[in-house]
């Protein structure tokens, strides 16, 4: 799994913009090939993205997610793990 520290580091290579409840993520890139590699996150993904920072821990992020979206901890943990995995692999492309 991609660690939060890795994602914090990878985030520096992207520019974001909020549109409504969603987030657009555009890579800073030095070549044409990656220019179309932009993607969007829904409200939940946006919340997670915005709450990944240097001082963040997985448990704190999980608790914030459970509290913000009123979901059970077990489902949230499973979904957060899956999301971070996918986010990490997308950001590394």
């Amino acid at each position: 799994m991609t660690s939060l520290a890795e994602i914090v580091n990878l985030k520096k290579n992207f520019v974001t913009r909020v549109v409504g409840d969603e987030l657009i993520i555009v890579p800073l890139t030095g070549n044409v090939a990656q220019m179309n590699a932009l993607f969007t996150l829904n409200e939940t993904g946006k919340f997670i993205w915005e709450n990944i920072h240097d001082a963040q821990t997985f448990d704190n992020l999980l608790n914030s997610l459970v509290s913000e979206f009123d979901i059970d901890s077990e489902s949230a943990q499973r979904d957060l793990n899956a999301f971070l995995d996918k986010l990490g692999s997308t950001l590394k492309k």
Binding site: V15, R17, V19, G20, D21, E22, L23, I24, V26, P27, L28, T29, Q34, M35, N36, L38, F39, T40, L41
Partner: peptide, 16 residues
């Protein structure tokens, strides 16, 4: 929303 913006932006001529 964001999907429309990202889809249109992808076809803009840009040096990112």
């Amino acid at each position: 929303g964001a999907v429309a913006v990202s889809r249109v932006l992808a076809f803009c001529i840009q040096n990112n």
